[in-house]
Write a protein that binds this DNA or RNA. Sequence first.
DNA 1: CCGACTTTATAAAGCCCCTTTCCTAACCCC
DNA 2: GGGGTTAGGAAAGGGGCTTTATAAAGTCGG
Lengths: 416, 416
Amino acid sequence: MKRGTSRDIRTANRYEVLRQIIAASPTSRQELAAATGLSLATVATLVGELLDLRMITEVGFEDSAGGRPRGLVAVNASGGALIGVDIAETYVHVELFDLALNVLARAEENMRPGESRPQQVVSHVAAAAGSVVAQAGVEAARVLGVGVSVPGQVDRATGISEYAPNWDWHDVPLLDLLSEHIAYPLYLDNPLRAGAVAELWFGAARGHGDAVVVNLGTGVGAGLVLGGGLHRGVSNSAGEWGHTTLVLDGRPCRCGNRGCVEAYVGAPGIMQNLSELFPHSPLLHADDQTATIDALAVAVAADDPAAVQVVRETARYLGAGIANLINVLNPEVVVLSSWVAARLGEPLLKEVREAVARHALQRPLAAGRIVVSPIPSDPACLGAATFALEGALQSVGQRHVRRTGVGARSRTASAG
Amino acid sequence: MKRGTSRDIRTANRYEVLRQIIAASPTSRQELAAATGLSLATVATLVGELLDLRMITEVGFEDSAGGRPRGLVAVNASGGALIGVDIAETYVHVELFDLALNVLARAEENMRPGESRPQQVVSHVAAAAGSVVAQAGVEAARVLGVGVSVPGQVDRATGISEYAPNWDWHDVPLLDLLSEHIAYPLYLDNPLRAGAVAELWFGAARGHGDAVVVNLGTGVGAGLVLGGGLHRGVSNSAGEWGHTTLVLDGRPCRCGNRGCVEAYVGAPGIMQNLSELFPHSPLLHADDQTATIDALAVAVAADDPAAVQVVRETARYLGAGIANLINVLNPEVVVLSSWVAARLGEPLLKEVREAVARHALQRPLAAGRIVVSPIPSDPACLGAATFALEGALQSVGQRHVRRTGVGARSRTASAG
DNA sequence: CCGACTTTATAAAGCCCCTTTCCTAACCCC
DNA sequence: GGGGTTAGGAAAGGGGCTTTATAAAGTCGG
């Protein structure tokens, strides 16, 4: 059982202050103190640290109404760059961000079916990472780190992909493999947690102690924010909500079980909902999840009754599953994220809210809002980049090596 | 979003040290330091505090093998008394504990059907509390506090029972009502959290950062230990696992929904499992849950095939529900608690383990043990008493009131 | 029997964190 | 240009934990 130290408080506060600055840039120390609940003095020293790191800059003064004007600080967007890598079953997305987390460059590599060897994946990542750096024209030295999101169970401390069901990987030392091609500090985690961190820093979970980020894609899962931080579980595999049973002895799921949430609300599950209700629907694009979901989204927007019914049926399952999360965890906010949620958007949200209201208990229901993720781009990329940002921030708090002589080496950057 | 302060660290360490002393009494400072990971100096000061409070005493020395012998400390069982109150639908249990959390006296009051007014419940509690103090013959001054567990949603800070479904209470200021009859410091919470705290301090969750305490009684729920502490949720209603959907559109539940876990694995649900499989079973005692479960337990122990089948059927549901918790939360241990679990014991556990293994994912399954609570008595009473113990410990860390003059009042104990 | 060695417990000092308080800086208004 | 007002920094203070030094209390061997 890990004990917390006073340094953890500092780290959390540093995160909080930077989050606030990114969210409301430019801002003043006063506003930061009010928003974070920290004292002015603490905010000032933390702002000082961030200024020293060149992560933020002073950008002038607020107009005064009869006193010394407030100094304003803003993110120093060009003070560094972060790379987020989203490795998925069929593609690798890489995005390069400035420190305000704007996307400066994107690259995408598609993986052919059968490309499942770690080395193949790694070379795609390396190529795309090289590409975004070149595109954006940032100097290598300004890249603070690379966050990598890979599906499955991941041990972030060792950088090992313990288990990736897509490719049947077992204990692949992904970080080591990547570090042969990529010289920047690397951080590894999975898309569920990346999505959760993205929402926590920049999305709908900002400022909330307890939040659930529901990931609706081909696979389904939930990133858990509990007590203001990510909940990882004892073996790094918390959040496998997609494989919780919703319909005992129900529809078979690719995990081998029956009646899992994912079997009903993942993209393939939605396709099945569609084909069961309307076997000959023109919306159905066999073997193409993306096209089918897109078609469904368009049809729903046009009030196509069949599409509406499919969304309602899907929301019936999704709502019950989300109600389960709400009843158990009692979060402040539930965020619907990933590409299926983004495309189906408001119509799905509306139906989901109604379905959740039918299943959840009054008190937890009343306490929790349900929203669609406000993050415009790939949340796994953004979240992965955020891990890199956290890593860069972490190194500030590192204990300084006591210099033993004139020629003492400066401390080395730790990656991962 | 609450920020942590360095005082919270102190409080957590104080809890940890006392937990360890209670668990392994007598013990030495050295052992404590090793067990908690704290430095000797910190352990020594914390032990000093506890000695000052007379919660522990020095009880001699360990035999030395060539050095100064280790001083041994042990719980000072007679240094104080704690009262735990378990208010349930049909009864009020009250137990009085010494500081080693041994039961010194018990009292039980049964509530007649229809006795649902807060004042009626309060008078039962007051009577029973008076009784245990008299039975045990402890002086009033030595009672450090009274913990009260009441079903439903509870706001422990204000002492209000926000919602109790049994009696349709809404926002009953229970702590205020109780304080008119009981002079000791009072602490209010619900049985789910009481059970979790009991396991965390004295039971199967001790030393684990992430644990789930599954409560199987008439009602069903889960107490969540996450990150080493209780997870309450944003509106104090986390843990309502009993009302998560396991069989969409399944059996009706008393919450108004269908297919809830509770409808299959709560005592009434088990009775229904029995009556559906064997409508004329002699095990079935209509309208008497306790008798039926008892009969079932006896029959299972005697390898009665019908009883075995009922337990297996129950475990099928329970296992799926527990697998859901394991997949989402990835805990280190799942504890089966409360009276149904205690009576059905090993036979149920065996079937549950098999059922969980069929539903849970490999990684989280492998990481989590499933056990029956080792706590012999009513875990809600013990947990409630533990809240009182935590409260008594809390007051040590209280900021000292700055004395404004010679006649300054000493600080007042805050209750709740 | 007494000194040497070992081990424990306490005291002191150091470092980290946050807050409160005081003081100077900077601006508006009259 | 002074007075009032607000911002920001420096210093002091209160907690916490750890490392290091010192005192205490044993065993062991000569």
